[in-house]
Design a binder for these strands. Structure first.
Lengths: 233, 233
DNA sequence: CGACGGGAGTGGTCAGACCACTACGGGACA
DNA sequence: TGTCCCGTAGTGGTCTGACCACTCCCGTCG
């Protein structure tokens, strides 16, 4: 029936796949600039509107970045770039799925903390200590949360697995932490959190992976348990 | 200087945020149909082209699904829908990051398998057995790979954490498995893989979480080690 | 030699038209 | 009376061409 082209799916979808393939096969290197929207549209034989939709899709996926007036560029294609969308899951989750997310975080965070205990450099450990003190030196919830995030981020980075760190980053997205943390801290969990952070830091300083794993698991597990209880009410 | 609207970011970006907010706040329920593209464009005071780009972005994020001729619908918003994009990381990763991905998978897969050992139902265990036998009964690599995937998928589902299962699904995306698996199996790892799968199954049947965790970790770890060695060549 | 100003080129937005497909209901038929 | 079919209204999908906002570079002027 058809003449030449199989024409499966929408033209935009095909454009997305074509460009994805070019990036995957290495025809387009990280940081490299793509042809213009107009040129890409001509090359693939589609309209500029459709091409723009494809570009938008790739932008959301973190594969590509558009700079107004300058051009479209391939990102560094690192885990952080590609996993930025991970945060939406955390943002849109409610009820039981928040517990699931914490469960995943407990598993990954404990592993990352254990790895960090074995690999962390003195400089980075100092950074961790900095955030720990800053966190204990203020009463402003916003500031506490910020240092709390930075504390764990530093540890995740020290674990040496960028992919794991990127996933953990997504699991701690601002709105997620704010939603869960608020209720947790309102019930006077400050002291407990402080003790747990101190325990994690001690394990890191002692270069004790097993203790670090246990401390991190307990830390996340505490929030997890609290949330579980709150859901059954 | 400005009159009324602060106008931060592009209009498309704002549209994405507006609709995301509507979904997050529950104004739009899962499965519900959105207003027309044309209507949404009018409501937010932007052109249809820009609105279409916003819709495309939300489609890629798995929050929304467009059906030609019918309308735009909010997805079920389950972990599987939202984490579909996770696969692109696996598809675009090369070299050291493949090892990182396997490291993450080892951690999550071992936990999921341990949970499954404690929770799996007889029916689901029968499914697992089915794929195990099917995998051992053929020589066609394609078929083996398919049953291999299904074997682990079934176990992940039995663990009862949909989010974890969705992440693992992304880590086993077709192209990823094909790329890594091919080289691994070509070196005669069939027998080894078979033994490891059998060990995992035994642990599940025995309802032994610790054994299951160890077997799964060893299974993924074997591939991980092989890949590590191949990268240093 | 350096600052600067303008123009070419890029992504961002808009408008309006038409195409492809779905869903639904009214009419023809058994 | 019931069933099937097909027309049609309405939806997403695509195209065109125009203009705007911004970046970057190069030639000019001080």
């Amino acid at each position: 029936m058809e003449e030449t082209a199989p024409q499966k799916g929408t033209v935009t979808q095909r454009a997305i796949e074509r460009i994805t393939a070019m990036i995957r096969e290495g025809e387009l290197e990280p940081g490299e600039r793509l042809p213009t929207e107009r040129e890409l549209a001509v090359r693939l034989g589609i309209s500029r509107s459709s091409m723009r939709e494809a570009i938008r899709a790739l932008t959301v996926l973190g594969m590509v970045e558009a700079r107004h007036g300058s051009g479209i560029y391939v990102t560094r294609l690192e885990a952080g770039d590609l996993l930025e969308t991970f945060g939406v899951v955390a943002d849109l989750s409610r009820g039981p799925r928040l517990v699931e997310l914490l469960e995943v975080r407990r598993v990954l965070e404990s592993t990352a903390t254990a790895l960090a205990a074995a690999r962390i450099t003195p400089e980075r450990l100092a950074e961790v200590e900095k955030h720990l003190s800053a966190m204990n030196a203020t009463d402003d919830p916003e500031e506490i949360l910020a240092h709390d995030l930075a504390f764990h981020r530093e540890i995740a980075a020290a674990a040496g697995n960028g992919t794991m760190a990127a996933i953990l980053e997504g699991l701690s997205s601002r709105t997620f932490r704010a939603r869960v943390w608020r209720g947790y801290q309102e019930e006077g969990a400050f002291a407990r959190t402080r003790r747990e952070h101190a325990a994690i830091h001690r394990a890191l300083a002692a270069r004790d992976p097993e203790a670090a794993r246990a401390a991190a698991a307990a830390h996340v597990g505490a929030v997890e348990e609290w949330l579980r209880g709150r859901l059954t009410d």
